[in-house]
Design a protein around this nucleic acid. Sequence first.
DNA 1: AAGGTGTGCAACCGCGCATTC
DNA 2: AGAATGCGCGGTTGCACACCT
Length: 303
Amino acid sequence: MGRMPCCEKVGLKKGPWTPDEDKKLLDYVRKHGHGIWRSVPAKAGLERCGKSCRLRWINYLKPDIKRGNFSAEEEHTIIQLHALLGNKWSIIAAHLPQRTDNEIKNYWNSNIKKRLIRMGLDPITHKTIKKNTFETSDVCYDNPKDTINVCHVAQWESARHEAEVRGSMVQAGSGSSYFSGLILSKIPTQPCLSSHSLSTENSTAYNMYALVLATNHDFRLPVSTSSIPTLPAVSNIPQITNTESLVSYKVDNNDMGASSQSETEIEGCVSNLQDDDIMVAVEAFRRTRSESMKELFNESTSM
DNA sequence: AAGGTGTGCAACCGCGCATTC
DNA sequence: AGAATGCGCGGTTGCACACCT
């Protein structure tokens, strides 16, 4: 049995919306809210599909939508997030206040994508394109240095998946994505080789744990302070030490933001982190989370 | 001036997921 | 449990306009 159509399409208008239609939809939603979109057209006196009404509202009529040219900062954010998440336009849009996924997608396809190609970068992988073959140049095992790079690319992919999951969580959550945006905005578009010592990595990983906890909007999800390794504070990077109190504060107050003092502390810490620090931290976070999952899995199978 | 081509973007379509019954 | 339903997402289409020949 096939899927039922979203609405009775016979006699319904398609194509560009007229100012009159916009007014009808706007007036109706302002007065009654959209409710079930399927029923909106009849109630608002529109000969449109409910889906079409929803799209029109989300992309154009919603009062808090910013239209017009993208700023350099917005463009930079889009490129960074696309490198991390791929074509997850809705998640990217969640990090750009007042911009819609459709608008970002269009801007990417008509503008940024072409510019990346002109610059010799693959718009999908964000890697350089081989001049003669147009193949991406990420696999070359002859040189040990290249092997390290390949390994780093794989780590980057893992980190990207982690970010994607986090992005979904942010989207599913009900609150602000401010801190997540702050972290994501610090993650470079390309993996880079790091010369950090293990001690620095440990410390930065700890910071990342704290930041992830601080940005985790739903503490029922499997990220807990118990999974934070005990690590020595041996870095010039300041360490967030009051994660527990931060978490309890947020839970107790059922609030998306921590105390203003904690906010300042986190924001300052994130701002001070360098790209290499973030890379190392994301990888350390991924590795330890993976180990935690293995432990959990072993526990559950041995029961 | 007219036809062809390229570009930007609003809107549509189909699918997957979540929820409801 | 599974069918029906609604919503949201990403890919694609098609139109209007600008630019080129």
